[in-house]
């Protein structure tokens, strides 16, 4: 009895994965052609990139007052939008949790949350700028909508995972809805809620540096204006300042998260 006729392979070929890779390669070639991205254009772009970087260096910090003003406004937008978003997300999350709310309410709330989340915050910011005028208020409104959707979704999911025993125990004492929520539900999800809020504050800070591009306040407006004036050394200064701000915020929030754990 020999098995010489059979080719034994340690690893059988995975045809599914191979087909998927070939399909992706074919798609990439097709999409490159569709979008008119050619080697010649890339070569020109590389030259332009060199020139661009050359003009960005050295970063020009002489207008640091303008820069600081923009950064502080971004920070203010982020703080207010996070606070409003967190406050609004609390009732929405409770209403969207299918184990607590009656199902028609949960369904409607879920639809509303999904709607808030599916439009990009920059698009929401444009609409608010058109409706309520230029300035930080539009940025606050746009980021509030985004934060509300994000936290409410995660909060609802967290509530759906809680143990119902404690809720039933509180209910059995004859407690009303408020007492059930405060003593049965919230203690189980409070730490996760704080985690989501912290994460959202972090991402609001990133996003608030951006909504200015469409006129909704913060450093983004300064950045966009500098780009339009081909003021690339000031652009470099603004970008460095934004990266530094985000980096500091990330360090602080990871410290706080480590403290909470």
């Amino acid at each position: 009895m020999t098995v010489s006729g059979l080719r034994l392979r340690a690893f059988p070929p995975n045809w599914g994965a191979r087909t998927a890779f070939v399909a992706l390669a074919v798609y990439a070639a097709y999409a490159f052609a569709q979008l008119d991205i050619t080697a010649g254009r890339l070569a020109v772009g590389m030259g332009e990139a060199g020139r661009f970087l050359g003009r960005m260096w050295p970063p020009n910090f002489t207008r640091w007052e303008l820069l600081l003003e923009g950064l502080l406004e971004s920070l203010q937008i982020a703080v207010i939008a996070s606070a409003l978003g967190i406050l609004l997300a609390l009732p929405l999350g409770l209403m969207a949790a299918r184990n607590l709310a009656p199902w028609p309410l949960a369904l409607v709330t879920r639809g509303f949350i999904a709607f808030c989340r599916s439009l990009h915050y920059v698009i929401v910011a444009i609409l608010f700028v058109k409706a309520i005028g230029f300035g930080a208020l539009a940025g606050v409104a746009a980021l509030t909508i985004a934060s509300m959707g994000f936290i409410a979704k995660l909060f609802a999911e967290a509530i759906e995972e809680i143990s119902m025993k404690q809720v039933e125990a509180i209910r059995a004492t004859g407690a009303g809805l408020g007492a059930v929520l405060i003593y049965g539900v919230l203690p189980q999800v409070a730490s996760r809620f704080v985690g989501f809020s912290l994460y959202q504050l972090d991402s609001n800070l990133r996003n608030s540096t951006l909504v200015g591009i469409v006129g909704a306040g913060g450093i983004g407006g300064t950045l966009f204006a500098a780009f339009k004036r081909f003021d690339y050394d000031f652009v470099a200064a603004i970008l460095l300042a934004i990266i530094a701000l985000i980096f500091v915020a990330e360090v602080i929030s990871s410290r706080i998260r480590a403290l909470l754990r």
Partner: peptide
């Protein structure tokens, strides 16, 4: 929050 609310420029008419 107080710092942000006091500092931010919000036009009451808007």
């Amino acid at each position: 929050l107080i710092w942000a609310l006091r500092g931010i420029e919000i036009i009451p008419e808007f």
